[in-house]
Amino acid sequence: MFLECGVSEVGMAVVESESGANGRVHRSDVRAARRRLSGLIRKTPVFHTTITSPSGPVPVSLKLEYLQHGGSFKVRGSFNALLEAGEQVEQVVIASSGNAGIAAALASARLHKSCTVVVPESAPHTKVAAMWSHGAEVLWHGTTYADALGYATELAAERSALQLHAYDLPAVVAGAGVIGLELEEQVRGRPSVLAAVGGGGLIAGIAAAIGRRQHVIGVEPVGSPTLHAALAANQPVDIGAPTTAADSLGASRIGDIAMDLSRRHHVRSLLVTDDAIVTAREYLWREFRVVVELAGAAALGAVQSGVYVPEPDERPVVVLCGANTDLSAL
Rank of each mutant, 00 (worst) to 15 (best):
residue 271 L to Q: 02
residue 137 E to N: 08
residue 270 L to P: 04
residue 27 R to M: 00
residue 137 E to W: 11
residue 184 E to N: 12
residue 101 G to P: 11
residue 228 H to N: 06
residue 59 P to F: 06
residue 160 S to E: 11
residue 257 I to G: 11
residue 316 P to Y: 14
residue 275 D to M: 05
residue 71 G to T: 09
residue 85 A to C: 04
residue 242 P to Q: 01
residue 223 G to K: 04
residue 145 Y to R: 07
residue 11 G to W: 10
residue 220 E to K: 01
residue 169 L to S: 13
residue 79 F to A: 08
residue 164 L to D: 11
residue 35 R to F: 06
residue 235 Q to C: 09
residue 31 R to I: 13
residue 40 L to P: 01
residue 209 A to H: 03
residue 45 P to F: 03
residue 311 E to R: 15
residue 328 S to E: 13
residue 182 E to V: 13
residue 298 A to K: 08
residue 205 G to E: 04
residue 70 G to Q: 08
residue 207 A to F: 01
residue 194 L to A: 04
residue 158 E to A: 14
residue 285 W to Y: 15
residue 270 L to D: 00
residue 67 L to W: 04
residue 295 A to F: 02
residue 180 G to E: 08
residue 12 M to P: 02
residue 41 I to A: 08
residue 91 Q to C: 05
residue 323 A to C: 09
residue 292 V to D: 07
residue 89 V to G: 02
residue 37 L to S: 05
residue 277 I to Y: 14
residue 108 S to L: 10
residue 119 V to T: 14
residue 14 V to H: 06
residue 312 P to A: 10
residue 222 V to K: 08
residue 196 A to P: 07
residue 25 V to I: 01
residue 143 T to H: 14
residue 154 E to S: 12
residue 203 I to R: 03
residue 279 T to G: 14
residue 283 Y to G: 11
residue 173 V to G: 01
residue 218 G to H: 08
residue 276 A to P: 07
residue 259 M to R: 14
residue 266 H to R: 13
residue 324 N to Q: 02
residue 228 H to R: 04
residue 11 G to E: 07
residue 42 R to C: 13
residue 69 H to V: 15
residue 294 L to K: 05
residue 189 G to K: 13
residue 320 L to Y: 02
residue 193 V to R: 05
residue 92 V to W: 11
residue 122 S to H: 12
residue 117 V to S: 10
residue 93 V to E: 06
residue 274 D to W: 02
residue 293 E to K: 01
residue 260 D to P: 09
residue 58 V to D: 07
residue 285 W to P: 08
residue 63 K to V: 09
residue 296 G to T: 03
residue 328 S to T: 15
residue 195 A to Q: 06
residue 222 V to H: 09
residue 109 A to G: 13
residue 250 G to R: 12
residue 325 T to P: 00
residue 80 N to A: 05
residue 85 A to Y: 07
residue 211 G to D: 00
residue 34 R to M: 07
residue 72 S to D: 06
residue 316 P to C: 12
residue 86 G to F: 11
residue 16 E to V: 15
residue 212 R to W: 05
residue 85 A to R: 10
residue 41 I to N: 08
residue 319 V to G: 04
